[in-house]
């Protein structure tokens, strides 16, 4: 299901959901929930966006039913802890690689995915100042290291 251009801002969160459907369905569920909530604010009126959002909602309802025995889905406070732990795990992996001078595509993706998951945490309420700073740092690092590698430079 292609993300309509009006909902471009959620395409990476949606892609993260697809990438985690098998690896970690809880992460996939909350990434979809974030995409749904944000998508509705962006555009839920044009036919292509409505069609996309209705399908996304159908999928979310199906996932919630299938994962009903999982506390991270049935209790949002448990889900919040799961997503935060997962985001921090991604962040720490990339940060350790960075501090060891190991720059590669996987660590760039981990920094970027961590930043997307800090966005997803906003479905549970206002982000903590620490999470805001971690998101900013992870996003900046992902962009900076990506550009360095693209230009054949060694990140500092």
């Amino acid at each position: 299901m292609a993300v309509p251009p009006q909902l471009k801002a959620i395409q990476h969160h949606y892609r993260t959901a697809l990438e985690h459907d098998k690896r970690d369905p809880v992460v996939a569920y909350y990434c979809r929930l974030y995409a749904m909530q944000t998508g509705m604010k962006l555009d839920s009126k044009t036919p292509e966006c409505r069609k996309f959002l209705v399908k996304l909602m159908d999928h979310l309802e199906k996932m919630k039913q299938e994962l009903s025995s999982n506390e991270s889905i049935s209790q949002e406070i448990v889900g919040n802890a799961h997503i935060e732990n997962y985001a921090l795990k991604m962040f720490l992996y990339a940060d350790n690689e960075d501090r060891s001078g190991l720059f590669h595509k996987n660590m760039i993706k981990s920094f970027y995915t961590a930043s997307l998951l800090f966005d997803v945490l906003s479905v549970f309420g206002e982000l903590s100042e620490e999470n805001i700073q971690q998101r900013k740092y992870a996003r900046w690092k992902a962009t900076y290291i990506h550009n360095c590698l693209k230009n054949g430079e060694t990140p500092q």
Binding site: L33, M36, Q37, M40, S44, K45, R50, L53, V54, M57, L60, E61, K64, E76
Partner: peptide, 27 residues
């Protein structure tokens, strides 16, 4: 026609909002 179209869109939006609230056990 414009009013009818926006009214339909608004109803569908409300329906999505309700489904979202239900999904999150808010109703």
């Amino acid at each position: 026609t414009g009013t009818l179209a926006s009214s339909v869109a608004s109803t569908e939006q409300d329906e999505l909002s309700q489904r979202l609230a239900k999904l999150r056990d808010q109703i």
